[in-house]
Amino acid sequence: MHAAASAAARGARAGRWAAWAFLAPVVVYLLVFYAYPLYRNVDLSLRDYTVRSFVQGDAPFIGLANYAKVVGDMTFGPALWHTVVFTLVSLGFQFAIGLALAVFFYRNFRLSATLRALFLVPWLLPLIVSASTWSWMLNSDSGVVNAALGVFGVGPVHWLTSPDWSLWSVTLANIWIGIPFNLVVLYSGLQSIDPVVYEAAALDGATGWQRFWKVTFPLLRPVSAITLLLGLVYTLKVFDIIWIMTKGGPSDSSTTFATWSYRLGFGNLLPAFGPGAAVGNLLIVAALASGLIYIRVQRRLALP
């Protein structure tokens, strides 16, 4: 008994070394391919880079001047507002539509599994495919959306080329892409609700509508919170769709922090790496803040 215990202890000690040996690749990986690029990104934002000093690495340290420049920039206010609108509107619609579909698919019917799988398609397609398809559908002159609206006598809307519409167009495409994720996660949340609860509600004479608001919705709250927070983190990151569809234009009308950062760093002939990195770091702070809330919520809900 005693010998077995000490053998187990020895085993545990050896196991600990083995454990870190197995973890060595991922630790090295995180340091080299995450920590170092991120450090370089912070470094970029604190120095006055030009193309020449970017290559030679002797840019002067200027503290927070890049951040001051970015916050004082004319684009800052609109970009912040667009990021907030884009994120909140996307989240709201994705979640509401995803939840409605999850409830719809919850009761199995003929073909329900197949149709549910087909709903995943928009999420799996490369973003460049979805974005270019939407671009063509929303084309002012030859797009199918305007053709369909024309049938009802609605004049051509300049979805991507008018400052009044561009932000809504990219939001629409983003909602389309995000619905599958919400559907799948909320559906699995619904499945984890004990059917006995519904039977009890049915015995008490609850109608379908009451059952949803009084039983399903409250029980789904943990999964909903996680879905929304993950959605928030994902949506803050969205760059491809906007860049491919509008490049943040026309005249910054669909610029968010993500596209602004890219444009500063890569979109011009004369790259402004410092300010670009500064905008990017502001975005990281926002993403991490929502990420930390997500982890907190998840931890609290995981407790029995």
Binding site: P37, D43, L44, I284
Partner: peptide, 14 residues
Amino acid sequence: MIPGIIMAMGFYAV
């Protein structure tokens, strides 16, 4: 949770 565009900028420098 780190946005890809930020990783891209860091990677570019490296």
